[in-house]
Design a protein around this nucleic acid. Sequence first.
RNA 1: UGGGGUGUCGUCAAGUGGUAAGACACAGGAUUUUGGUUCCUGCAUUCGGAGGUUCGAAUCCUCCCACCCCAGCCA
Length: 589
Amino acid sequence: MTKADSIPSHNFICNIIAEDLKANKNEGRVATRFPPEPNGYLHIGHAKSICLNFGIAAEYGGVCNLRFDDTNPSKEEVEYVESIKSDVRWLGFDWGDRLFYTSDYFEQLYQYAVQLIKKGKAYVCDLSAQEIREYRGTLTEPGKESPYRTRSVKENLDLFERMRAGEFEDGSRVLRAKIDMASPNLNMRDPTLYRIRRVAHHRTGTRWCIYPLYDFSHSLSDSIEGITHSLCSLEFEGNRPLYDWFLDELNVYHPQQIEFARLNISYTVLSKRKLVQLVEQGHVTGWDDPRMPTLGGLRRRGYTPESIRDFCERIGVAKRDSMVDMALLEHCVRQDLNQRAPRVMGVLRPLRVVIDNYPEDRVEELEAINNPEDPSMGTRNVPFSRVLYIEREDFREDPPKKFFRLAPGREVRLRYAYFIRCVGMVKDEQTGEVVELHCTYDPETRGGDSPDGRKVKVTLHWVSAPHSLEAEVRLYDHLFVKANPSDEKDSADFKTCLNPNSLETLTCCRVEPGLAGATPGSRYQFERLGYFCVDTKDSSDGALVFNRTVTLRDTWAKIEKAQKQKGVAVHGSPLSVVRNVLIYLADEH
RNA sequence: UGGGGUGUCGUCAAGUGGUAAGACACAGGAUUUUGGUUCCUGCAUUCGGAGGUUCGAAUCCUCCCACCCCAGCCA
């Protein structure tokens, strides 16, 4: 990788940092942080933030902290902190010894609150949640001051201490900042700093019964850690004045909050709230269902961390709401996997082919290239015999225009093997379905080249029937049928456009014998089909299960789709079929 | 009808007064024992709209329009 490649694309945040550096702000120091709340699993939207924060730290010789924003014990669990850590690591980032928790600062945060009270900038309020809401006013009308706003410093100190000591009921009192109930920015209308909540915390246990809220704890945690640039998403723009207020009132180190647009991708959803519904209502099998945009789902699907990082690099960072085309994500995995995935042959929907002129008991080992993009990956042998399977869709009894594959009388190449010509077919007498093909092979074309220079329009993948292994293959498609599921007027019901065909399970697939014992998580390109990953949960030596990561680009599919849309005459002449083909009608099927 | 933001190709996105990068997608073509890969070529006389300043505007000014966020003791 060249230097230019490794530099994050130019974005407005880099511009700000570069200027700060030039002005020697923060003594040339750069410190960022990734601050997840441990209340759910990471998804690709988080990956954007992780890549940004860790990427900037790396680029400018700074550091990036991993900080769990664990101020709401009723929603947070250790299970989530563990999964988040492993996802960040999997993505390829290392926080070294800079693992922090907001809960590490509870005592210090409490002292900051006391300072605010002493300055007359915070007070204990006895209004109920309902009343606080009523007193807040509306977007267009100012709020009313709480009757408790004028309590003395002494009384506030006493009350706050007793809140901590557990003398009051949950929800009976809160600590509030004393700012301005008439502020046009609702965040500044005496926001709540602490609430009473007798819930055990995953790290501090029952030591505390009061917990700080986001605005207060986040800005101060950033300050405590010496964060220089605190990057967050757009919806916190209105919180910035409050972020700044705490730091100014307390006169402590003042990081700069910068907001950027969160990631949206077409044909999926990226909000914790919505993802939870998909899991809980059984629309997917879990957080790591390969259709989920979670890092766990993408990993199981076969996405590489490199491809996700590349994607995050390419989408850029800006302030406008946007929706990135899913096709870009798919492009990124294809590009990565094209370079590194070993090629293999697998037949998804097998069609039996008998090579009439190939000896019954002969088996040949044919050399196949593991990756044409990378000769160092070497070669392997695949067995060839009289009975094979090819892809059902690679044969058409009545081929449409531009269909180059097998048809009665046609000759094609079997990859790394021989040219074969279709001379007959067996049909199910009930359904008329073609259930077996009879072909002849040309012994002169071993390896795939014809000595007489004869050309063939296409190369098919295949497996030797007796040598092949059975496998289950799961074909995944977009989770939603609409580019923007959140568009539903009835925004509650983004699920109305769930794709009913997002998963198709194929159970009688046949793959080449070399795949026996394939390691769970390993990725392959099934030639001509796509990239597949051995499932990490359901696959075993005796019962292989593959997940399709993404298809290969498919020019034929595109042509066929266009033909169907135009209603073009897609059939060839039936006369040629009659002339060239022997048709065996089934009697034993 | 309060405040805070944002509007550049179908989708992302550079551009910061000197005459519209790049990527994906799409469309052609070449090469190809994957209809894959790779390689060429094409793809915004125009930057939400209207005025204005200027020799010169996507960039500055004015007005207008559209969209997003904020009324949790969530983050």
